[in-house]
Amino acid sequence: MTEEEISRVLRRDWGNYLSQQNWLALSEVPNALREVIVKQLYVSINQGTATDGHCFGMVHAANEYFRDPDRVPTAVEDLSSVASPAAPIGDTVDFHHNRQILDPHTWGAWMLLYGGFELDYRTQLAAVRGAIDRGEVAGLALATWPRLEGHAVLAYGYRDQQEELILDVYDPNWPAEYYQTHTEEIRFDTGGDRPQLVSPYDGRYSRVVYVGSELRLPALVRTGAEVVARYLLGGIITVLVTSSVSLRVVDSTGAELRRDTADHMSSLPTEYSNIRYRYGEPKGDYTIQVAGTAGTRYTLEIDGASRRGKVIDRQMTNTFDPETTTHEFRVTVPDSPAGHVTIRRL
């Protein structure tokens, strides 16, 4: 997809979604901010960073066929016999897997999952139970913490057991015959005011978000709608280099800025290769480390915007000499376009 095509999707789908959700208007997001968001989404889409395992696409293809069996391709006699997501099943899997980047609700749910907010499991579990009671299944996004790895499953049943709620889930990492003798479970302790996971799912996924669209995004976390709006569409900063060098960016809290990775992503660079990014207000101090080999010339680009407009847009070109193959910079980003940007070499 081109940046213009992504921009049209944001104006059309995200604008309609936000209006329906009634918690933020797209008009509150200035063009400068949308342009930086489009840049980050462009890299994710064109480098295929949603292709890691196809778990999201597999569970939502399964959900589609569960809700409407007539959509199962006529060439497929038994879905449980499909060993891999090849065509025509694979086309449905790919559609659902790739849409998670541009679908505003799914994108927002993933971003909140990765955002470190306290999750509101009481509200989410009520919605999951409601979906199952209606004869539906419930899509769940999972993440490790603090190292961010994602997964997706479908909840199709639940059991109340003393002070626990046990969700029976379909995990696409297991073949169909596995479920003839086994049940995969996610267990929540519901004995207190705030339900919590009893233990990480599969020994590592310690955060869970329900991705059903009937829940507004702010309902997923224990914070106000304005906090969610400031995080998701309040600002973004991106840092990238245009050569084959190593890049590391750390914010003032010591957290490293995200880099999209996936086992099966394309290794072909976009014009925005090697990008690091962070959603939320971009203001603050950042430490940037660039490492390479002697004689390598690179351009470092820093781009950031908030609801108040563009707050930083800087480019620097440098060359490594034989004695120094690591460059380190300290960047201070102001909270408004009128503020003063400072960049100094350490």
Rank of each mutant, 00 (worst) to 15 (best):
M1V: 08
E3Y: 08
S7I: 02
L10K: 02
D13N: 15
D13T: 11
W14P: 00
N16W: 06
N16P: 00
Y17F: 10
N22C: 02
L24T: 01
P30S: 13
V36R: 07
I37R: 03
I37P: 01
V38K: 00
V43R: 06
G48L: 08
G48A: 12
A50W: 15
T51Y: 04
D52Y: 13
H54D: 14
C55F: 06
V59G: 00
N63T: 13
Y65D: 14
R67E: 13
V72K: 14
P73I: 01
T74Y: 12
A75G: 07
A75I: 13
A75W: 05
E77Y: 07
S80N: 14
V82G: 02
F95G: 02
H97D: 15
Q100R: 15
I101Q: 08
L102S: 13
P104S: 06
T106S: 14
T106P: 00
G108N: 06
A109V: 12
M111A: 15
L113P: 06
G116W: 04
G116D: 01
G116K: 06
L119P: 03
T123E: 07
Q124L: 04
L125W: 00
A127C: 04
R129C: 10
D133P: 03
D133C: 04
G135V: 04
E136W: 05
T144P: 07
W145P: 10
P146M: 06
E149H: 10
E149R: 08
L154P: 06
Y156G: 11
Y158D: 07
Q161P: 03
Q162T: 09
V169G: 02
D171T: 00
N173K: 10
A176G: 07
E177S: 11
Q180V: 13
Q180R: 14
E185K: 05
R187C: 06
R187M: 05
D193Y: 14
D193I: 13
Q196Y: 07
L197H: 00
P200E: 01
V208G: 07
V211D: 11
E214R: 15
L215W: 01
L217E: 06
P218D: 09
V221E: 04
V221D: 04
T223S: 13
T223Q: 09
V227P: 10
V227M: 15
V227F: 08
A229P: 00
L233S: 04
L233M: 10
G235N: 02
V245H: 06
L247R: 01
D251P: 05
H264A: 11
H264E: 10
M265L: 12
S266G: 09
S266D: 09
L268N: 07
P269G: 05
E271T: 11
Y272D: 15
I275G: 03
I275E: 12
Y279G: 03
G280F: 11
P282S: 05
P282C: 03
A294H: 01
T296R: 15
R297D: 10
L300N: 05
I302S: 05
A305I: 07
R308W: 11
G309N: 00
G309P: 01
R314T: 14
R314G: 05
R314D: 13
T326P: 04
E328S: 13
D335W: 01
S336N: 02
A338Y: 08
I343H: 00
I343M: 07
I343G: 00
R344Q: 12
L346M: 04
L346I: 13
